[in-house]
């Protein structure tokens, strides 16, 4: 029997306590090892969707399963281990005095101690190329370095699926490329919420468009970006001078 998909979202609907409904029945399945981009205009419900994946928001309709385990109050600890969310602003994610303590935060909450914990920290920092920075305070790092450490803080929990919220925002071109190289080399399932369409094309073979609280398109990223009518209908615009047709069609 093959292993269950990393993520199954079925009929997910949600309204905030103030009455504003953000999701109207989202269906999304992400297979193990896939890299999927979630595209969509501002206010489409992307952040709301992300916060459902690890059970921070609950109480609407529908269901979410991570590698076969349903998101429910009784197994939140395991769900939060399996779903590693990297938030948009690394300063929100890096809240401890040093990089080491920050990377240790997740695995320590899982009960890891001593040498086992130290190994996890080493491993996670090595994966993002920040092995020599364990004792630095986060605010002494560059923005790109902080973003990479933020990725390490969730990798240290050995997640089933890595969820990235706008991973390329505020990065200079070099940091952007370095992060792409790191993400491409990671052996995990990736779900990436982004406005950065070239980045989505580079990293994710598959993309979905979330608009008005539902998934309106699910297709290979290349095909989506080349579909001018769909793009325009959902306020998605390619940066000036960028034509996906001139980029080598990604293999994946």
């Amino acid at each position: 029997m093959s292993s269950p998909p990393s993520l199954v979202v079925e009929g997910l609907a949600f309204a905030y306590p103030d009455g504003h409904q953000a999701l109207y029945g989202v269906d999304l399945t992400v297979g193990r090892g896939e890299r999927v981009a979630v595209l969509g205009p501002n206010g489409a419900g992307k952040t709301t969707l992300v916060l459902h994946l690890n059970g921070i928001l609950t109480g609407g309709r529908g269901r979410v399963e991570v590698a076969g385990l349903p998101v429910a109050k009784t197994n939140l600890a395991e769900i939060r281990r399996r779903v590693g969310i990297v938030f948009q602003d690394p300063d929100d994610q890096l809240f401890m005095p040093t990089v080491r303590e920050d990377v240790a935060f997740g695995p320590a909450n899982l009960g890891l101690r001593g040498p086992e914990l130290a190994d996890r920290i080493e491993e996670a920092l090595a994966l993002v190329g920040m092995a020599g920075y364990a004792d630095r305070p986060p605010h002494h790092l560059s923005y790109g370095q902080r973003r990479r450490v933020a990725v390490a803080t969730v990798l240290a929990m050995r997640p089933e699926i890595l969820v990235l919220d706008e991973p390329s925002s505020n990065l200079d071109p070099a940091s952007r490329r370095e992060l792409a190289d790191i993400l491409l080399a990671l052996p995990v399932t990736i779900l990436m919420v982004t406005h950065d369409l070239p980045y989505a094309l580079q990293l994710c073979p598959r993309a979905v468009i979330l608009d008005d609280g539902v998934i309106v398109r699910d297709a290979p990223t290349y095909d989506l970006l080349c579909d001018d009518a769909t793009m325009a209908a959902h306020r998605l615009e390619l940066p000036f001078g960028f034509d996906p047709r001139t980029v080598a069609r990604p293999t994946g």
Binding site: G106, N109, M157
Partner: peptide
């Protein structure tokens, strides 16, 4: 930001106990 930091903590398994230094 305080609320976002709290969310980021919850997302990494925070259950009300912070590690001691």
């Amino acid at each position: 930001r305080g609320e976002r930091v709290h969310l980021a903590m919850l997302s990494r398994g925070y259950s009300g106990r912070l590690p001691t230094l």
